[in-house]
Write a protein that binds this DNA or RNA. Structure first.
Lengths: 328, 328
DNA sequence: TTGAAAGCGGTACCAG
DNA sequence: CTGGTACCGCTTTCAA
């Protein structure tokens, strides 16, 4: 049932109903009450589609994420959602599962829905997709875009020092055979971590090897299996993130390898799970909540554009039980 | 930019553009091509809001979940999303965090958006909310609603046998002091599990106690802490779900208790994580994917209404390393 | 095969 | 303070 219905029953015009619904300028309180009563009686809910179509502004932020199953992304989403709510915005999330076609479909849907702002937290982002976004004129912000292009807001978290510290730390503990477990996307934060890993181990002159699989618990296990079946026997396994590291832990244990006595394992992100697995993961803290909040701050006009893009983090190593001295 | 713009540049009417966009009835292919070219040149994307407003049907399913951080809910969501996509539907998800007011707000938003169907997978559902949904005339389906009311579609998964088997199994192993870890919602599946637990231990004449906290890793740890600090020393801890069980595992270990030598722990749901924690959890398998698919099957007209509501499951016990004989 | 025009359910501006 | 009315961008008869 529509506004017209409400208007008729209350003996007013739709314009007045609209005013009441939006707490607009002075409406005689008698009139207001009358309208309100009808609204509750009829259990009337305005058609949000019509509202935004007419009003022009949607009060919804779009957010596209690579993998909401991985708590890293979920935490970013939740923080964004929480802050957005305080500003009266909804957050519509799309999960791509790292598939570029889903990313593109998501972008188009968001444009089609005329979201007030769009955040893309996805490493599978491609330049051509970026064009679609910029052409749409919708305010947008990206997470760790490969090439920071002019005029696009980009939140960058520099992960290089984090990976560097991990490798140095393990090297100091006597490790000389390193393995890296990643997931497919070659660009974005994941790619940067791998590149940094390779640079670091080369610099130190240590033996190394990499493997990759899906970004999931199962993927982490699989990558670890690939690694070990290749015959390489690392004493330290550096994972692209905590989520996969937990998977790797399982594979190692199933093979009778003890962590950290036989092999050290590290994660990245410092998700809650990294404290709850056993052994707890040595990892690098990434401020997911800050990222989520920053995103909406950059998208909501209310916050003012005082908020700069780059998040500079001190890539703090979090030492826990999954790392130790290299075996003799 | 709008359809009118496209129409003008192509020298046709908006009606024709609309026909082209929707692969409608015969449009002369010359005309069609001309329009298509303009569309791609302008990188035109139709306004989805206007489209559904005019068309009446939204091609979007709403889904409200209690806690997407818990993989149980996420898995249901993902399965639903996957099937929905094959039918050309989107799924808009809302996460309530078990807060009734967010549930209500979510319901209202979905109604406002005129979703084609609504699924509520939330244990904090209340009768008055149900009214709002039914009054909206939107096809809806609920998960484990307390009181199955007439005319509302309800998917029920009977958890009683599952909990019963867990208790019996542990009792057979010699356990006589049981604890239950739950989370707040008194109704819904969570409530049923607790009630069944209590009935079972009473029937067996064993000592028991319960504790509860949030549905999270941290919550599981907290509940375990409360339990142990109360002085009660259970030999078996039965958790409402795997997610909290992983939290409990951490607390037990931190207190120097070995699982399963000193105390057995069980989960529920059989989420992926239950295999990846250590020790792996003894649990009960709940077919989350089936639930998710069933939900959209019941909501999509295409699937026909052949699909019945109740999912009858064989509450299969999955035995893993977290349970063992009671300590001497 | 195509165009004109009437909505869909609101918002917002302009009179009164 | 309140009503009339012109859109918002697209779909869908009804004619041509």
């Amino acid at each position: 049932m529509s506004m017209e219905e409400v208007a008729r029953r209350a003996g007013v015009s739709t314009a007045t109903v609209s005013r009441v619904m939006n707490n607009k300028t002075v409406v005689k309180s008698a009139t207001r009450n009358r309208v309100m009563r009808v609204i509750t009686e009829l259990n009337y809910h305005p058609n949000l589609l019509a509202r935004t179509l007419a009003g022009g502004c949607s009060r919804t932020l779009g957010m596209i994420l690579s993998n909401m199953e991985n708590p890293f992304f979920f935490d970013v989403y939740r923080a964004a959602e929480t802050l957005a709510h305080t500003h009266g915005y909804e957050v519509a999330a799309v999960n791509t599962g790292y598939r570029p076609e889903k990313l593109l479909a998501g972008i188009r849907m968001m444009i089609g829905r005329r979201v007030a702002g769009l955040a893309v937290i996805a490493s599978e982002m491609e330049p051509s997709f970026l064009n679609e976004v910029t052409e749409s004129k919708i305010p947008a912000v990206f997470y760790d875009l490969g090439s920071s292009r002019q005029g696009v807001q980009n939140i960058r978290v520099n992960c290089r020092p984090g990976i560097g510290r991990i490798v140095d730390y393990l090297h100091d503990l006597g490790h000389r055979k390193f393995a890296y477990i990643g997931h497919h996307p070659a660009y974005g934060p994941a790619g940067e971590r791998e590149v940094t890993f390779v640079e670091s181990v080369k610099r130190l002159g240590s033996a190394w090897r990499t493997a990759c699989a899906q970004d999931s618990l199962e993927g982490g296990r699989q990558a670890a299996r690939l690694l070990l079946e290749s015959g390489f026997r690392p004493t330290a396994v550096i994972c692209v993130n905590d989520f996969m590291a937990v998977g790797a832990l399982r594979e190692l244990r199933d093979r009778g390898l003890h962590v950290p006595q036989d092999v050290s394992v590290t994660g990245f992100d410092n998700i809650k799970l990294s404290e709850f697995c056993h052994p707890a993961l040595t990892t690098v803290h990434i401020p997911r909540e800050r990222i989520g909040r920053r995103v909406v701050a950059m998208l909501c006009p209310e916050e003012g554009s005082t908020t700069a893009g780059d998040i500079v983090i001190d890539p703090e190593l979090v030492l826990r039980g999954s790392t130790g001295p290299a075996p003799a």
